[in-house]
Design a protein around this nucleic acid. Structure first.
Lengths: 236, 236
DNA sequence: GTGTGATTTTTGTCTATACATTAAGCGAGA
DNA sequence: TCTCGCTTAATGTATAGACAAAAATCACAC
C-alpha cells in the first residue's frame, strides 16, 4: 500500500476538479456510492472528502450532498521569509544597521496607532537591511509595548533584526500584508543610497495575536533588487 | 455537542503552540495518553492531530512521537482576484481597451518564449484595464497556441478581458507570480497617462497545466492606485 | 567497539457500526 | 397559497478494534 486509499480517492477528485472535468457546482457522488466504487468503508471516503473540504475544493451540505466549490477568489501562497535568512541563502552577507529607536505615546489622531497601542505606549524603530553592505530595504516598525512587554529590556533586538527578534519572542496568529509601489522620498532615497523618486516596493504588514495588535511594519525595498514570489499549485 | 471533541483537542494544542507554552521541538503526549486524558477513542485524537499536521504546526514520526514543528518559513495567502470583478466590487465601471494582438513565432534567443510556445506559435496581446475610464493597468500577454488552440477563433477574448477569458476556457494547475516595483518607460507612461518614470507595481505570472506552459502575463499597475493584499490566519 | 538483526513503541490506515445533526422536500392544514 | 411540522437523505462525529509500517532501542555476534 504505497499510496493510502484515502489519498488516492482525494487525488482522483482533485485531478478531476482541477482539469475542469468536474465544473464548479457539479455534484459529487454521495459517500455510499463512493464506498461501493472504491470498495472501502465510509470513514475512508470521508477522510478523502474532508481533505478536499479543508483545501477548499468542495462544499458539503447535509442532506444536499457534495459539490465542487465555486472558484474562490483566486489565491496563491506568498512566501514571506525573513530577510536575514533569505539574503544569506543568496550567498550574500546580511547586516542590520539601526537608525534609531524610541518609546513614545501613540498619536491620538491616528486611529491605527491608537489601536495598535491599545492603551499603552509604542516602541518605534527604524533601520536598514543590508546585503553585502548595500542597502536593500528600509524598515520602519511600531511595536505595542502592551502586547510585547519584553521589548523594554531587549538589548539584542537590533543585534539581529527586529523581525527575527519578534518572530522568536511573539508568535502571531493573524497577519495582513499590503504590497504597493511608490517613489522614494528624498530622505528615504538618501538612506537607501538611490536616486530620489526611484520606484520602490512597499510592503506593509499588521500582525495580531488573537485580536490584540502586536506590530506594524513598513519595509521599503529598492525597486530593481527585490522580487516577491507567490505560488499556487501541487498541494503539498 | 456544539463543538466537536476532535476540534476541541485540536484547538487546545493550537493555542498552546501559538502561545509559546509548547515550544518548537517539544514533544506532545502520545495518542494513548491523549485518549485517556480526553476520555475518547484513538481515532478522535488522531483526527485532531492530523489537522494540526496538515496545518504544519506539528511533525509526527512513527515510534518517535509527535513534536511541535519548527516555525516554517512564513507564508501567507495572496488574493489574486481578476481585475474586472475587483474593480466592479469597488463600485467602479470596468472596461478593457485592446491595444493590439497578433500571432507570431517565439523569439529563438528567448528561452522563456521558446518553452512557452512548446513548438507552436505565440498569441501576443496587449491592452489596458480601465476603472471609470481611467487606466489602472497595462497588460502584456503571451499565450501558447499549442496549449490553447481555441484562441484562434476567440472573437470574444477582447470583449471581456484576456484574463477572464482564459480562466473560463483553460483551467490551470500551477502558477508562479512575481511582484516587483519599477519605473514606467516613456511608452508605458503614455498609455497609462501618468508621468514618465512613475513608480509602478509589476505583476508577472506564469501558469502551467500539468507541466505544459499556458500563458505569461505582465501587468503594470499605476503605483498609487492599486495594492495587493495577502493574509494569514484564522484556520477556518 | 561495531555492525546487524530482532524487538517494541508509536503512528498510519482501514473497517464496521452507531447515533447526531442538518436541511431538503413533502404533506397537512389554515 | 402559505406556513408549519414531519420525514428522510445526506453529512458529521465518534467508537472499538485490527493490522501495517516505520524507526528508536536493545541484544547479540563478530
Amino acid at each position: 500500500m504505497r499510496q493510502p486509499l484515502h489519498e488516492r480517492i482525494r487525488s482522483d477528485f482533485e485531478a478531476r476538479i482541477l482539469s475542469g472535468e468536474l465544473a464548479p457546482g457539479d455534484r459529487l457522488p454521495i459517500e455510499q456510492e463512493l464506498m461501493q466504487h472504491y470498495g472501502c468503508a465510509r470513514m475512508t471516503v470521508n477522510k478523502a472528502l474532508s481533505a478536499l473540504l479543508s483545501a477548499g475544493l468542495i462544499d458539503r451540505r447535509k442532506r444536499a450532498g457534495t459539490f465542487v466549490a465555486r472558484p474562490r477568489m483566486h489565491s496563491m501562497v506568498l512566501d514571506v521569509p525573513d530577510l536575514p535568512s533569505q539574503i544569506r541563502e543568496r550567498g550574500q552577507a546580511y547586516a542590520y544597521e539601526p537608525i534609531g529607536h524610541r518609546l513614545r505615546p501613540p498619536v491620538p489622531s491616528l486611529d491605527d496607532e491608537m489601536q495598535l497601542a491599545g492603551g499603552g505606549d509604542l516602541f518605534e524603530l527604524e533601520g536598514l537591511h543590508l546585503a553585502d553592505g548595500i542597502p536593500l530595504a528600509l524598515e520602519y516598525r511600531l511595536i505595542s509595548v502592551q502586547a510585547v512587554p519584553d521589548i523594554s529590556d531587549a538589548t539584542d533586538i537590533e543585534a539581529i533584526s527586529p523581525g527575527s527578534w519578534l518572530l522568536k519572542h511573539v508568535p502571531w496568529t493573524e497577519a495582513e500584508t499590503r504590497i504597493s509601489a511608490l517613489e522614494a522620498t528624498a530622505e528615504e532615497a538618501r538612506l537607501l543610497r538611490i536616486p530620489q523618486r526611484s520606484a520602490c516596493l512597499c510592503v506593509e504588514r499588521r500582525t495580531w495575536r488573537s485580536s490584540d495588535r502586536i506590530t506594524y511594519v513598513r519595509q521599503l525595498f529598492v525597486g530593481n533588487s527585490y522580487d516577491l514570489v507567490a505560488r499556487f499549485g501541487a498541494t503539498r
